Simulated scan of single mutants.
Amino acid sequence: MKELHIIAVVYAKAGREEELCAHLSAVVAPSQNEEGNLRYELLRDQDNPLRFVFVEQWSDAALQQKHHVEGKHIQEFQAHAADAVEKVEVYRLDRIA
C-alpha cells in the first residue's frame, strides 16, 4: 500500500466563512477516527479568511475514497453546508523526499 497525501483548499462564499468554518470543523474528529487516516487537519489562511485548507494523510487511496464517498459526516456536510462553498481545489500527492 502506498500512502496518499491530500491538500484540499476550500473557499467560502463571501459572508458565509464562519458558517463554513463550523461545518468544516465538524468533519475533522470523525475523519481522524476513520480507518486508514494518519493525519487530518483543518487550517485557515491568515491572509484570506475565506480560504480553508485540509491537510490529509491516508494509509492508502482506497480508504481515503471510502471516507470521501461513504463517510456519514462527509455526506452530512454535502447535504447541509455545500452551498456555503465557492470552490474547491484538491491535490492528491505522493511523497518524493
Results as ranks from 00 to 15, higher is better:
residue 53 V to N: 04
residue 45 D to I: 05
residue 25 S to H: 09
residue 18 E to R: 10
residue 59 S to G: 04
residue 76 E to T: 14
residue 64 Q to T: 00
residue 80 H to S: 13
residue 41 E to Y: 05
residue 26 A to W: 02
residue 42 L to K: 00
residue 19 E to H: 15
residue 29 A to E: 13
residue 52 F to V: 12
residue 21 C to H: 13
residue 62 A to W: 08
residue 42 L to H: 04
residue 71 G to F: 03
residue 38 L to V: 00
residue 31 S to W: 09
residue 73 H to D: 01
residue 54 F to A: 02
residue 79 A to P: 04
residue 22 A to N: 10
residue 60 D to W: 04
residue 54 F to Y: 07
residue 44 R to P: 02
residue 83 D to E: 14
residue 82 A to N: 15
residue 25 S to A: 14
residue 18 E to G: 03
residue 53 V to S: 03
residue 35 E to A: 10
residue 18 E to F: 11
residue 60 D to G: 03
residue 54 F to T: 00
residue 62 A to P: 11
residue 81 A to V: 03
residue 83 D to S: 12
residue 74 I to K: 06
residue 51 R to P: 07
residue 34 E to G: 03
residue 80 H to V: 09
residue 52 F to N: 04
residue 22 A to P: 03
residue 47 D to K: 14
residue 37 N to K: 06
residue 19 E to Q: 14
residue 49 P to I: 03
residue 58 W to V: 09
residue 58 W to K: 11
residue 24 L to H: 08
residue 76 E to V: 12
residue 26 A to E: 02
residue 45 D to L: 08
residue 17 E to Y: 05
residue 77 F to K: 06
residue 65 Q to M: 14
residue 66 K to F: 04
residue 81 A to N: 07
residue 28 V to I: 10
residue 16 R to H: 10
residue 40 Y to D: 00
residue 16 R to W: 08
residue 42 L to F: 10
residue 57 Q to D: 11
residue 65 Q to N: 12
residue 26 A to R: 03
residue 38 L to H: 00
residue 77 F to A: 08
residue 32 Q to E: 09
residue 22 A to F: 01
residue 71 G to E: 00
residue 64 Q to D: 04
residue 56 E to L: 05
residue 42 L to E: 06
residue 27 V to A: 06
residue 39 R to C: 11
residue 27 V to H: 00
residue 20 L to Q: 11
residue 69 V to C: 08
residue 22 A to C: 06
residue 78 Q to L: 15
residue 77 F to G: 07
residue 54 F to H: 02
residue 49 P to R: 09
residue 47 D to T: 14
residue 62 A to R: 14
residue 36 G to L: 02
residue 33 N to A: 12
residue 51 R to Q: 12
residue 24 L to C: 04
residue 80 H to L: 07
residue 16 R to I: 05
residue 67 H to M: 01
residue 50 L to E: 01
residue 76 E to R: 15
residue 21 C to P: 05
residue 35 E to L: 03
residue 23 H to Q: 14
residue 69 V to L: 15
residue 53 V to P: 06
residue 39 R to N: 07
residue 62 A to L: 13
residue 61 A to Q: 10
residue 47 D to A: 12
residue 58 W to R: 07
residue 19 E to G: 09
residue 38 L to F: 08
residue 82 A to D: 15
residue 80 H to E: 13
residue 61 A to S: 15
residue 42 L to P: 00
residue 52 F to D: 12
residue 44 R to K: 14
residue 65 Q to V: 13
residue 39 R to G: 00
residue 69 V to K: 12
residue 72 K to H: 04
residue 60 D to I: 06
residue 66 K to L: 07
residue 63 L to N: 06
residue 62 A to K: 15
residue 18 E to W: 05
residue 61 A to I: 05
residue 70 E to A: 13
residue 70 E to I: 04
residue 47 D to N: 10
residue 39 R to L: 09
residue 21 C to N: 13
residue 22 A to V: 04
residue 17 E to G: 08
residue 75 Q to R: 14
residue 60 D to K: 10
residue 31 S to F: 11
residue 23 H to I: 05
residue 57 Q to M: 10
residue 57 Q to V: 14
residue 74 I to C: 05
residue 32 Q to R: 15
residue 41 E to A: 12
residue 83 D to P: 01
residue 76 E to F: 03
residue 33 N to P: 00
residue 20 L to T: 07
residue 58 W to D: 02
residue 82 A to G: 09
residue 55 V to A: 08
residue 82 A to Y: 11
